[in-house]
Design a binder for these strands. Structure first.
Lengths: 145, 145
DNA sequence: TCAATTACTTACGTTTCTATAACTATTATA
DNA sequence: TATAATAGTTATAGAAACGTAAGTAATTGA
């Protein structure tokens, strides 16, 4: 029996446990409740709040078609959460930027999403440190979501 | 400085790392692609494939209103993925059961969702064991998702 | 037994998500 | 400069996700 097989088996268990912990839909529900809009809309606002970007880049990050993003951003702009600005480098493209209001909404969402479950906080500090070390090692440099 | 504060800070980091790892939208996308239906529909099939249950219980698990579940299950029934059966205990309620076809679809989805990312599999066995131990400790007895 | 409750469905309307085709404006290139 | 490629928008249209009100059938319990 190879060590790779051992890894795989344990990794599957770990993955299952992690997924169960993270994929708690109450969290999504809470976010839509607090922000007063869909999770997808909130996701866009959060992205833009971190950094202004072109429509195309944002569409790619959110994994949606450009025409659909146009509609979404129209909506967010009407709500006063983002604005489109001219891109000085390329007049074809538009830069999407979060307004102060948009950033507030993004912060509210992040606050909910970043709050770890009680059960995680309740672990021993040593265990948490170990978790952090291992997960940091397992994490891609680019991050996701 | 209390130990609780230390825990909280590290826990937040751990949580962030875990969330990034789990919330990879490519996975969702792949599931809808393979199953040929929305993630929500697939979620329902997966639930029922594990265990037959009443409409109400399923609606609660999926976090949706009963009328909406009725529509969803109608759709899945037309697709031949589930069937409604009489509940011998209570003739008001219906038991939703996955068909063989439904179970196949559920298996396909699970196969994608249960596959841990390469970066996790690549960790040392000792680290994986530690992760498992910690996460098992942090997991609720009831599970979620 | 009969009123209240429960489990589910029907009917309806709104929002959100999704994809595609055709269009304008701008930039890059041959 | 003419042509192609790019960035975004408009226009459609269908599927999916939500919520509420009102209805049926079965059960509970006073």
């Amino acid at each position: 029996m190879s060590s790779a097989d051992d890894n795989s088996a344990v990794a599957r268990e770990v993955w299952q446990l992690m997924s169960d912990l993270v994929l708690d839909n109450q969290r999504r529900r809470k976010v839509t409740e607090v922000t007063g809009m869909s999770f997808g809309r909130t996701r866009a606002v959060r992205r833009v709040a971190k950094r202004s970007m072109q429509m195309g880049e944002l569409a790619d990050l959110l994994g949606m078609e450009r025409p659909n993003l146009t509609t979404l951003i129209n909506d967010l702009e009407e709500k006063g959460l983002v604005i489109r600005k001219a891109d000085p480098r390329d007049r074809r493209s538009r830069l999407v930027e979060a307004t102060a209001k948009g950033k507030r909404v993004a912060r509210k969402a992040e606050a909910i999403l970043k709050e770890p479950p009680d059960r995680l906080v309740g672990l021993d500090v040593e265990d948490l440190e170990t978790l952090r070390r291992c997960l940091a090692e397992a994490s891609a440099p680019g991050g996701s979501e």
